[in-house]
Nucleic acid binder design. Sequence first.
DNA 1: GTATGGATGTTCT
DNA 2: GAACATCCATACT
Length: 190
Amino acid sequence: MARYLVGRLVARRLAVPGGEALLLGRIVETEAYLTGDAACHAFRGMTPRNRSLFLEHGHAYVYLAYGTAWMLNVSAGPVGIGTGVLIRALQPIAGLEIMRARRGRVPDRDLARGPGRLAAALAIDRALDGVDLCHPGPLWLGDDGGDGAPSEIGTSTRIGLTRDADRMLRFFRRGSAWLSGPARLNRPDG
DNA sequence: GTATGGATGTTCT
DNA sequence: GAACATCCATACT
């Protein structure tokens, strides 16, 4: 699923002064967190924080990392199995004005380059934990049939881990200007 | 582009 | 009380 999600769309419907905004971004970078994977939050079983990881695939697991940054994950297994995909970076497609306003004075390239930045740009926080991402709502996933050629997806180790850090479970759109992570990991094969 | 250190809040031991 | 799926500013190459 982590590989599949590269090239798909994230859609966010958001109330703004005077109406509603639609924010869109194309996923360019993901990471997989598997069962039996010491880096997966579900590794030691279900807790109040990680329970959304155990929902049927296609639900949001949102949590706060380092006290400052929200992370958007997609549950990826059948009910009761804690496994998921972290969405790490987006190419902004629509609603850039809103994203810029939310992110402050940063280059467009940095609007959603990194999981915490992505969540900040799309106003994602705990309120969206557990939502169904497979149908239109406040937050959902889409597919416009574009930009997902498997041959154009590179792999690397995951970023920022101390445990199970050597597995090739990061997936990214090759050559994208919107990737997070050090340049050495973004080469054709990380 | 790369490397470093501090801020931050929640979770679990 | 330690660990943590990060970000930002700063300094340096």
